[in-house]
């Protein structure tokens, strides 16, 4: 790619960055706006996390260039994602004795 084509390529990226910026602002306003609706807690958590995930994905895909990255990074992140989700479920194990106890109780 010659220098001129590279500049044009970056200019199109810049346009995308400003569009993502606009989307992030709109989504931030939506997040705050929804919180004033006083939805039931489970619904409020779901909406807040969905909007935050969309915002996070926009940052990761465009600002961190994950939409066009090398395979090695995707593999590293997939492994991280697996352990991250595992970690979020770790608190459940603190109740595992009760869960198993209940199951054993119903069997016997």
């Amino acid at each position: 790619m010659d220098a001129h084509a590279a500049h044009d390529d970056i200019r199109s990226h810049v346009k995308t960055y400003y569009m993502v910026f606009g989307a992030l602002m709109v989504l931030t306003i939506i997040t705050v706006g929804v919180s004033y609706l006083h939805l039931p807690i489970p619904m409020a958590i779901a909406v807040a996390l969905i909007v935050a995930t969309i915002k996070g994905s926009l940052v990761a895909l465009f600002f961190m260039h994950l939409s066009n990255e090398r395979k090695m990074i995707y593999w590293a992140l997939a492994l991280t994602g697996f352990f991250f989700i595992f970690l979020l479920f770790v608190p459940l194990f603190t109740n595992s004795d009760k869960i198993i106890g209940t199951l054993v109780g119903t069997q016997w």
Binding site: T31, I41, A44, I45, A48, L49, V51, A52, G56, V59
Partner: peptide, 11 residues
């Protein structure tokens, strides 16, 4: 921060 904001301030 995108996750911290709703989790701590809005929920």
């Amino acid at each position: 921060w995108i996750f911290l904001f709703p989790i701590l301030y809005l929920l």
